[in-house]
Design a protein around this nucleic acid. Structure first.
Lengths: 218, 218
DNA sequence: AAAGTTTTTCAACAAGCGTTGAATTTTATT
DNA sequence: AATAAAATTCAACGCTTGTTGAAAAACTTT
């Protein structure tokens, strides 16, 4: 592969990521993407074979990295105390912190991607299939950890709890500005530090409340 | 206004609601909508004046009803014990139950609408503006009630808690099928009864954990 | 039954869509 | 320096898009 072919491909993905995140799959034209990437329209079909495949490629590119970071964070927590299972807060943090950290390190690279995932996750059209394909293996790994931390928890409660977590996470990273309006500017959707301290607390409490030991009587 | 003009307008809104909910604003053509409504394309522009205005009209139609039901539920709870403030669970339930009840009563009418709102809420493009316009007055009323139930709570924590609630609620009603895949069919996104018993518990616990009294030392 | 409104139909518009094949330029290999 | 391969450009295709103006039909009011 020639020297700057990859550079072009990446530039296309950057542009696609940005525009798809903001306006969704159908709200963006291939011409807009290629204009932003500074390349000819036909190149989109040379490097990726269709608009739809370009969309998938944009989604896949960073999913791999995020999955690896999350797994590493979980394993680090598990090794910290080898005997007893980690707390729920620690597990949730291992899930959410990698997002916040990498967003802090390379905001210009990851901001759009997070919004893109948020949009996909809530889309009846793509949500089920794509999120399952790209993220469920790692999510299942986290659910295993949570099962150990919540002995006797009913399976349904565990899944629903994760679902609520996913929704909260997703809306937060969508950065729609709703929160800013509602709070008259007191809270900013873009303030990820505000999230990082609050989300694990909020979510862990939810898990604890819902996933009590079903083997014991109430 | 002639007898069945309103009927046509409603049929158009039904079709728009359904298709917009499934594929988003840009994923749907006016021709598709009018074909589903069984009416000529030009009628869309006669009754509503543009595609965008039709979208807004579809969103607005049921928002009014939902807001009224929520307010009524909140006032009912408040009147139940006139002296002390209602519990957080009761307030959250007053917010979520109307959705679930009306979904139970008239599923074919409301199912699409809930998914539509879910999609809008997570859209960086429309989310901030539209949700603010149609729902924030009632949301502020609920936040007032929560302030009473959580004395000394920091304002930021309250707003972020609501944000997490909104995200969890939203993803649940988007019915993307993700939960079904993740749980291998054990949980169904469409099972609203499963939500109604779990969401208030989960969310109320989150509020409690995050919105402690900031005036007292930890 | 005539006149006036409101609703519906029909046909068309300019613009933009995703996509493609062939020609051309750039890079890698011999 | 010649040859092969990869990357890029250009121009175009058939089709669909949101939208509109004028004519026809349905309905109300006189």
């Amino acid at each position: 592969m020639p020297r700057n072919a990859k550079a072009t491909k990446e530039r296309i993905l950057d542009a696609a990521e940005h525009l798809f995140a903001k306006h969704g799959f159908d709200g963006v034209t291939v011409r807009q993407i290629m204009s932003r990437a500074g390349a000819d329209v036909a190149l989109a079909y040379y490097h990726f074979k269709s608009k739809r495949d370009l969309f998938d490629a944009a989604l896949l590119r960073r999913a791999k990295t995020l999955n690896e970071l999350r797994l590493a964070a979980l394993e680090a927590v598990e090794k910290r105390h080898p005997n007893d299972p980690p707390s729920i807060e620690e597990i949730i943090e291992a899930f959410t912190r990698p997002m916040l950290e990498i967003l802090n390190e390379k905001p210009e690279e990851w901001r759009d991607y997070m919004a893109l995932v948020a949009q996909v996750n809530n889309s009846p059209e793509w949500g089920g299939k794509l999120m399952t394909r790209y993220f469920d293996p790692v999510v299942n790994r986290f659910l295993d950890a949570l099962r150990l931390a919540l002995p006797g928890c009913r399976e349904e409660d565990l899944y629903w709890s994760y679902h609520f977590l996913s929704g909260a996470l997703t809306l937060t990273f969508a950065e729609t500005g709703r929160l800013d309006n509602l709070s008259n500017g007191l809270c900013l959707s873009s303030d990820m530090a505000a999230t990082s301290s609050r989300m694990p607390q909020f979510i862990a409490a939810g898990f604890r409340a819902l996933c009590h030991d079903s083997r014991k009587p109430d």
